[in-house]
Design a protein around this nucleic acid. Structure first.
Lengths: 148, 148
DNA sequence: ACCGTCAATGACGTTTACGTAAAGGTAAGA
DNA sequence: TCTTACCTTTACGTAAACGTCATTGACGGT
């Protein structure tokens, strides 16, 4: 009758259900739960049900991006800590900064890789264009300049 | 006695042993053989021993880069075909071009990801610097400006 | 009261990308 | 000839990242 179970709409923060996030990020429920098993997400609970805050949602977005970049869940996990710098002691801030700089270095290398690969593939694309055009022009020529 | 088994130094092309390539690329023999099992490499043979040409070596470099970019071996495999455009029929050139363009699109997305992540991490790095400096300056101040 | 939907374990299965022996072949050097 | 270094194949093992049931629970609607 009275909403005995409806989670408190106390703090004006909107929350998300697992299915909602799954749909939004194109993941399965299993996958999101797996991220929790691995300690990448620690959603609140409304009874048994998982309740995700904006912060959880942001973390999930970071996880997805990390995955797109080819990092393992373990790597993404360390990665995530970097975004929680606010509540860290000066002691471990230096550690986090070291970690951040290592990641930056890794990403700079990856940036090189991506750019080089892009350049090569674009060259290949152009080369194919070239080949195809020559061939078609050649065909046209050998057909005694039938067109034009 | 006479080099009955020494591979023909016929064509002036230098060749590589599997251990050589493993050392150069920081891979294990097992890994390189695995790439062969998966059809990513098809080295020549001198008896039983694998003999790698410059071309094989170049392919291996591409494989490594693909892996660094987070692609699966299956993806890298298709990827490799793009570099063999020379000996392709116009028929499948169009197919290869399509594949190339898909990869280009994927890499452009990845480029965005990398750049955004880099920007964020650099911001975090700076933010930590900031926090640490404020704190140290605060400490200094509270110590009645002990230094300087 | 019954249904359908969404979610929660729990547990075994699968794919990818190799690791790790085990058992042996070949050729150069002491 | 024996050792050492480098290579071979065969085959089982494994860690990561989920997929895929099977079973159960809580709600909302009719």
């Amino acid at each position: 009758m009275s909403d005995l179970h409806a989670s408190p709409p106390v703090s004006g923060e909107r929350t998300y259900g697992i299915g909602e996030l799954a749909a939004e990020f194109g993941l399965t429920l299993r996958t999101i739960r797996h991220y929790e098993d691995e300690g990448l997400l620690v959603p609140a609970r409304d009874g048994q049900a998982r309740v995700y805050t904006h912060r959880d949602r942001a973390r999930l977005a970071l996880i997805c991006r990390g995955k797109r970049l080819g990092f393992s869940l373990a790597e993404v996990k360390e990665f995530l800590n970097l975004y929680d710098v606010d509540d860290a002691q000066a002691e471990q801030m230096r550690y986090l900064q070291k970690a951040a700089r290592q990641r930056i270095a890794a990403l700079e290398r990856q940036l090189q890789d991506v750019q080089q690969t892009l350049a090569e593939l674009r060259a290949i694309d152009a080369e194919i264009d070239d080949h195809l055009n020559r061939r078609s022009r050649h065909e046209a020529t050998s057909r005694e300049d039938s067109n034009r």
